[in-house]
Amino acid sequence: MLDGPRLPPRSGRPATALVVLLHGYGADGRDLIDLGEYWAPLLPDAAFVSPHAPEPLAVAPVGRQWFGYVERDDRERWTGVQSAHAALDGFLDAELARLGLPGSRLALVGFSQGTMMALHTGLRRKVAPAGIVGFSGIHVLPPERAMEAFDAEIVARPPVLLVHGDLDQIVPPIALPRAVESLETRGIAVRAHLSNGLGHGIDRTGLSLAGNFLSEVFA
């Protein structure tokens, strides 16, 4: 079972929403948990958790990975999101049960590889999450021959916010319009923002957009 740092609701009341923060390749849950502190004024009754990815980083002695990411091609990404899906999906179920919340009171926030996981698993939840936020990520697609089965797997269509930097050299900015097109083709409402002068990271504009988005979808 996955685990990682948690923040209880700032209000001190029982949680009425759960935000799960999914870190990028080579980081761990501590990398994103502070986003909970940043958004807590907007979401005082939300609990936050940032699980460590299930695998140790394959190319370094520290850090975690949702899946191996050496070739960084479509095949590796597709195999990877499939392999990590069950662990993340089970963790989401366990956290919701721990807090006594329905699946509709869940939001997923991912960065880079975490965005790939947020979109892959979030769109396959039996109960649609309230929303998904993705920073600097990709909507991972299967080989063309598997597209029909892929479409059948998408049973949840929560609203999605995607934010990307126009100077991102790790995940090229073209991933943003491609993800928007892919998601909208499948009936998912998407908002997108390209941050000027931003590389592979999260800026204050993205944080503000995401905080307002989360506040809206949980309202």
Results as ranks from 00 to 15, higher is better:
residue 3 D to S: 14
residue 5 P to H: 05
residue 6 R to F: 04
residue 7 L to N: 07
residue 9 P to V: 08
residue 9 P to D: 08
residue 13 R to F: 05
residue 16 T to N: 02
residue 17 A to C: 03
residue 19 V to G: 08
residue 19 V to F: 09
residue 20 V to W: 07
residue 20 V to H: 07
residue 21 L to Q: 06
residue 22 L to M: 11
residue 23 H to C: 01
residue 25 Y to A: 11
residue 26 G to K: 14
residue 27 A to E: 12
residue 27 A to H: 05
residue 27 A to V: 01
residue 30 R to F: 09
residue 30 R to P: 00
residue 34 D to M: 08
residue 40 A to M: 05
residue 40 A to Y: 05
residue 44 P to G: 07
residue 45 D to H: 11
residue 48 F to M: 09
residue 48 F to A: 09
residue 50 S to H: 06
residue 52 H to K: 03
residue 52 H to M: 03
residue 53 A to N: 11
residue 54 P to S: 14
residue 54 P to M: 11
residue 54 P to Q: 12
residue 54 P to D: 13
residue 55 E to A: 14
residue 55 E to N: 14
residue 55 E to M: 12
residue 56 P to N: 14
residue 57 L to S: 08
residue 62 V to S: 13
residue 63 G to V: 01
residue 64 R to L: 14
residue 65 Q to M: 12
residue 67 F to E: 02
residue 69 Y to I: 07
residue 69 Y to M: 15
residue 71 E to Q: 15
residue 73 D to C: 07
residue 76 E to H: 08
residue 76 E to V: 10
residue 81 V to A: 13
residue 85 H to S: 15
residue 87 A to M: 11
residue 88 L to H: 00
residue 90 G to D: 14
residue 91 F to Q: 08
residue 93 D to Y: 01
residue 94 A to Q: 13
residue 95 E to Q: 15
residue 95 E to T: 01
residue 96 L to Y: 04
residue 96 L to T: 03
residue 97 A to Q: 15
residue 100 G to A: 12
residue 105 R to Y: 00
residue 105 R to L: 00
residue 106 L to E: 06
residue 108 L to N: 04
residue 111 F to P: 02
residue 111 F to Q: 03
residue 111 F to V: 04
residue 111 F to H: 03
residue 112 S to C: 13
residue 114 G to S: 13
residue 116 M to V: 06
residue 117 M to S: 10
residue 118 A to V: 09
residue 118 A to N: 06
residue 120 H to S: 08
residue 124 R to P: 04
residue 125 R to G: 02
residue 126 K to F: 02
residue 126 K to G: 07
residue 130 A to E: 04
residue 131 G to L: 07
residue 133 V to Y: 05
residue 133 V to C: 05
residue 134 G to D: 05
residue 138 I to S: 02
residue 139 H to S: 12
residue 139 H to M: 14
residue 140 V to Y: 09
residue 140 V to W: 10
residue 140 V to Q: 11
residue 141 L to Q: 14
residue 145 R to E: 15
residue 146 A to P: 02
residue 149 A to D: 13
residue 150 F to K: 08
residue 156 A to L: 02
residue 157 R to Q: 11
residue 158 P to W: 01
residue 160 V to I: 13
residue 161 L to E: 10
residue 164 H to A: 01
residue 165 G to N: 02
residue 165 G to E: 00
residue 167 L to G: 00
residue 170 I to P: 00
residue 174 I to Y: 04
residue 174 I to V: 14
residue 175 A to C: 11
residue 176 L to C: 01
residue 176 L to R: 00
residue 177 P to M: 02
residue 177 P to V: 01
residue 181 E to V: 12
residue 183 L to K: 07
residue 184 E to M: 15
residue 184 E to Y: 12
residue 187 G to A: 14
residue 191 R to T: 15
residue 191 R to S: 15
residue 194 L to N: 04
residue 195 S to Y: 04
residue 197 G to P: 10
residue 197 G to S: 11
residue 202 I to D: 00
residue 202 I to R: 00
residue 202 I to W: 00
residue 205 T to R: 15
residue 206 G to F: 03
residue 208 S to D: 11
residue 208 S to C: 03
residue 209 L to N: 09
residue 209 L to Q: 10
residue 210 A to S: 15
residue 210 A to L: 08
residue 212 N to R: 15
residue 214 L to R: 12
residue 218 F to M: 05
